[in-house]
Design a protein around this nucleic acid. Structure first.
Length: 423
RNA sequence: GGAGAGGUGGCCGAGCGGCUGAAGGCACUCGCCUGCUAAGCGAGGAUACGGGAAGACCGUAUCGAGGGUUCGAAUCCCUCCCUCUCCGCCA
């Protein structure tokens, strides 16, 4: 959510920034609602003032035993008028909110201008794709031949875009989760959280999934609960409607959760293998910081996520999302992309964003500055650390041997209890 | 799911139709004071929105949420949500 006062004050800047994202929002509509709303508020508040004053007057007169029937019936009319006007104001409030809720976060000045994925500059590349002296198989082929991924039975259970992990496949997924959590809690100073995966609509609004991305979410209608598409949702909302103290900041949280996405708009995309699933596991990183330190913290968060791939010795690169490719709530985003041999390209495995105060404003998360004064909205950051299924996929493909077996990366062996998965 | 109790400011806790934005206490902030790891005295204070050059000032709203009754509601009525206790069910 962007700030109403700032939008009024810095109209041009907003329009320019939003245009850079490719947003085609018509702000003249905003002006209409805003002006009308303010007019009505002034109007109704003047009447309420009168009502309050008269009410007190009636109380006094009644105490003296005077007749109040005339003035009371006049008040009745006044109250009716107020009620009507209030309804109008309420309606305008809703319209204004609906409008603001659909405005994306304006990109940070440092974000490169561009229209889409192809305009994202590469920030750095780590490791080199392995040269295979045989034809590398895809992870789903490997998964089948090693009997660790079962797509057929998954579709029997749940339909398309689900997978059953089996044997050392399940073990590998679990090993990765433990490995990532241990790294982030042990070395990077994050607090581990195991949150609910079913949350209310308020929670979804708080982190920006609603109202815009309703179609992407699974909803349990009878209870009004949504399945989270990422642990970012419960983690960011952990401090919803709270005012923290500055010396509590920064807060670092990490959580492993399954994530649920309907993938409504991606029919036909990534249909093979486990790249794009309705349910997948992810270890998420979330930070609450002061506005002054959030960009520094973003770089650190990115490094924390990168370190997972470095320790697993998987080649990757970091790209910076251009204005046109930025997500709704983010002011700046880096994607980490891991090398996928069967596709001969890098694929997203993590997305690290600074949302600045966009989510904090929606969710009402503030902090009290050390030097005193008014509380301010803090900044929220989030990043995958990492998407577990995609990491597993990258391991299968990058570590495959000519005989069809897969070597377990050094860092995972203590979790796996074996150094390879053989057919 | 059944029965009961309850949700008031940062916290505790009064209020049960007008004089209550809300007693009192604690915590907090600022002065004063006491020469000592504490106490005393005085003062202050919430958030959002609207008007406004203004963090001045004025107004409106906010006592779990939403409706209703009333000239007027923290106070009365209805619905919902949440917490606690007991029972039932259950990993």
């Amino acid at each position: 959510m962007i700030d109403l006062a700032t939008l009024r004050r810095e109209r041009e800047w907003f329009e320019e920034r939003l245009r850079s994202r490719g947003s085609t929002l018509d702000l003249s509509r905003f002006d209409e609602i805003d002006t009308e709303r303010r007019r009505r508020i002034t109007e109704v508040e003047a009447l309420k003032r009168k009502r309050n004053e008269t009410s007190k007057e009636i109380g006094k007169r009644k105490a003296k035993g005077e007749d109040i029937s005339a003035i009371a019936s006049e008040m009745k009319k006044l109250s009716a008028t107020i009620k009507e006007l209030e309804e109008k104001v309420k309606e305008l409030d809703q319209q204004l909110y609906d409008f603001l809720a659909l405005i994306p976060n304006p990109p940070h000045e440092s974000v490169p201008i561009g229209e889409g994925e192809e305009d994202n500059p590469v920030v750095r590349t780590w490791g080199a794709p392995r040269e295979f002296d045989f034809e590398p198989k895809s992870h789903d082929e490997l998964g089948r031949s090693l009997d660790i991924l079962d797509f057929e039975r998954a579709s029997k259970l749940s339909g398309s875009r689900f997978v059953v992990y089996k044997g050392l496949g399940a073990r590998l997924e679990r090993a990765l989760i433990c490995f990532m959590l241990d790294l982030h809690t042990g070395k990077h100073g994050y607090t581990e959280v195991l949150p609910p995966v079913l949350v209310t609509s308020d929670t979804m609004y708080g982190s920006g999934q609603l109202p815009k991305f309703k179609d992407e979410l699974y909803l349990c209608e009878r209870d009004g609960l949504y399945l989270i598409p990422t642990a970012e949702v419960p983690l960011v909302n952990l401090h919803r409607d709270e005012t923290l103290k500055e010396d509590q900041l920064p807060l670092y949280y990490t959580a492993y959760t399954p994530c649920f996405r309907r993938e409504a708009g991606s029919h036909g995309k990534d249909v093979k293998g486990i790249i794009r699933q309705h349910q997948f596991n992810k270890v998420e990183l979330v930070k609450f910081t002061t506005p002054e330190s959030s960009y520094e913290e973003l770089e650190k968060l990115l490094r924390d996520a990168e370190e997972v791939l470095q320790l697993l010795e998987l080649p990757y690169r970091v790209v910076e999302l251009c204005t046109g490719d930025l997500g709704f709530s983010a002011a700046k985003t880096y994607d980490i992309e891991v090398w996928v041999p069967s596709q001969n390209r890098y694929r997203e495995i993590s997305s690290c964003s600074n949302c600045e105060d966009f989510q904090a404003r929606r969710a009402g998360i503030r902090y009290k500055p050390k030097e005193g004064g008014k509380s301010r909205y803090l900044h929220t950051l989030n990043g995958s650390g990492l998407a577990v299924g995609r990491t597993l996929l990258a391991i299968l493909e990058n570590y495959q041997q000519e005989d069809g077996s897969v070597v377990i990366p050094e860092a995972l062996r203590q979790y796996m209890g074996t150094d390879k998965i053989a057919p």
